[in-house]
Computed example of a mutant assay.
Amino acid sequence: MFITNNSTDELVDLYFKDYGFGQPVILIHGWPLSHKSWEQQIWAVVQAGYRCIAYDRRGFGSSSEPWSGYDYTTLAADLHEIITQLELKDVVLVGFSMGGGEVVRYCTDFGTENISKVALISSIIPLVAQKADNPNGVPQSKLDTILDALETDRVGFLKDFHKNFYNYVDAPLGNMVSKAQLDYDWSIAAHASPRATIQAARAWAETDFRPELGNVTMPCLIVHGDEDQIVPIKTSGDQAAEGIENSEYHMMKGGPHGLNITHKHELNKLLIDFLNS
């Protein structure tokens, strides 16, 4: 199904899946994937008695591929359009990786009256980049290398990116995901808009959400793996838990960035317990 956001410079059709009944839970995917990355959570949320809505960010999956609008303010406006047009109330927002940015910016731009809870899973919140006051962040040189690789050989870069997503090594044993999972993710990411892939990367690499953490006033679940090689836990989960007062923080031992796949059972239990609490 699609909803159309006509409030921005370009008309954007946002593709979404809508399953189940009850309190709505919106799943916001990470970069550079689509709603399909939530495969192991959608069934668990619906089975637990909730309405589960998972959508494709503009430029990704089956949504429109506009030239602009990949900043977090516009992305949060897309999320608001989904909530408004579907007439959702008492919403739970769940953001994975880049999707954590939409969660926090939504609270900043649209308030929390209609949001009951939020969850940040392997999230980029509050800041990815290394700075003088954020020494544990990703060095700018590494971020520049990523952006350069996306501009020169996007599909080649994405082929190896998902190995780091799951801490995958080229060995016959010891990996937490199959080679088929890597191929599946690559196929999804490779078919995203090249423009969206690059501009969205700039958004998650450059946006500093530290001043906005105080806007997240509702109960917040934070889950992060201590072996995350994409978004280091010290620059993300640790700081988010410190900056969001009403938060419940779970460090997942041995968890890579893609713990929604590798540690799906542990994550699903944490998420459902949080929804039920």
Rank of each mutant, 00 (worst) to 15 (best):
Y168I: 06
A171D: 13
N134K: 08
H80R: 07
L147S: 08
I125N: 03
I115F: 06
K163D: 09
G99P: 00
K163M: 13
E113L: 10
I115T: 04
P172A: 09
P126R: 02
I125C: 10
Q130E: 15
R154C: 11
L147G: 01
L127R: 14
G137Y: 03
Q140Y: 06
Q181E: 15
G100Q: 00
V104K: 01
L93I: 10
P172Y: 12
F96E: 10
D160F: 09
G111P: 01
G111Y: 04
F165L: 11
V128R: 00
I115H: 05
R154K: 12
P135C: 10
H162W: 15
E87L: 05
I115Q: 04
K89E: 14
N136S: 14
L127I: 09
A180W: 07
G95A: 05
V177W: 11
Y184Q: 14
T108D: 11
Q181P: 03
T108I: 11
D144G: 04
F165S: 05
S122A: 15
S123N: 04
D185W: 15
T112F: 02
G100L: 01
G95P: 00
V118Q: 03
F96Y: 15
G95D: 03
L143N: 07
N164V: 06
D153Y: 00
F157A: 01
A77C: 12
E151F: 05
S187H: 13
E87R: 10
V138N: 00
N167M: 06
G137I: 04
A132N: 13
V104D: 03
A77W: 00
N136R: 10
A180L: 12
D153A: 03
L182F: 07
Q85A: 07
S178L: 12
Q181W: 11
V94C: 08
M98D: 11
Q181T: 15
I83R: 03
D153I: 02
